[in-house]
Amino acid sequence: MSGFLGQMLQGVLGGGQQGQASPIAGILQQVLSVKDGDKQGVAAIISKFQSAGLGQPVQSWVGTGQNAPVSGNQVGQVFSQNQIEGWAQQAGTTPDAMRDVLAQALPHVIDHATPGGQVPAQTTDLSGLIGRLFGGAGTTR
């Protein structure tokens, strides 16, 4: 899937410029760093989706089968309006577009972060994971 996610997200944001993947990669790193109680990273994202009544789709992302889709509106039930607006501002887009980007990206990100259907206790190499999904775009430090 190398590079595919970056191209897909650029299309959602309405541009085809290579540089647009960089802020999205950084935002996905922030999303994967969220906390939910005593959970952080992938486990926290899964917990937040389950708490929002979206356990079935998120479990499909963890599992080894087909990833179930979610909508931008459903992503808006998982993350606060302030989080969405902050990420949208960083990416130079609207909150609606950011919700749509996250709805398309998170199934792929969680799927790749849970190889073999196992949720890692802690997601440590976020930049490497995001880099693989974006084909290396925008993940250097």
Rank of each mutant, 00 (worst) to 15 (best):
G41V: 01
G41C: 11
G41T: 10
V42K: 11
V42Y: 02
A43G: 07
A43L: 08
A43M: 04
A43E: 12
A44V: 06
I45M: 08
I46L: 13
I46K: 14
S47I: 03
S47R: 03
K48V: 05
F49Q: 00
F49D: 03
A52W: 11
G53T: 07
L54H: 07
L54A: 04
Q56T: 14
Q56K: 14
P57M: 01
V58K: 03
V58D: 10
W61C: 05
V62N: 01
V62P: 04
G63K: 03
T64S: 14
G65F: 04
G65S: 00
Q66A: 10
A68L: 09
P69S: 12
S71V: 06
G72V: 09
G72R: 00
N73Y: 04
N73I: 02
Q74I: 00
V75K: 00
V75S: 04
V75C: 09
Q77P: 12
Q77W: 10
V78K: 01
V78T: 02
F79Y: 00
F79R: 02
Q81F: 12
Q83Y: 15
Q83N: 15
I84M: 13
I84V: 15
I84E: 12
I84P: 10
E85C: 09
E85F: 11
E85H: 15
G86L: 09
W87A: 10
A88W: 08
Q89C: 13
Q89W: 13
Q89V: 14
Q90T: 12
Q90E: 13
A91Q: 11
A91R: 07
G92S: 12
T93M: 06
P95D: 05
P95S: 06
P95A: 02
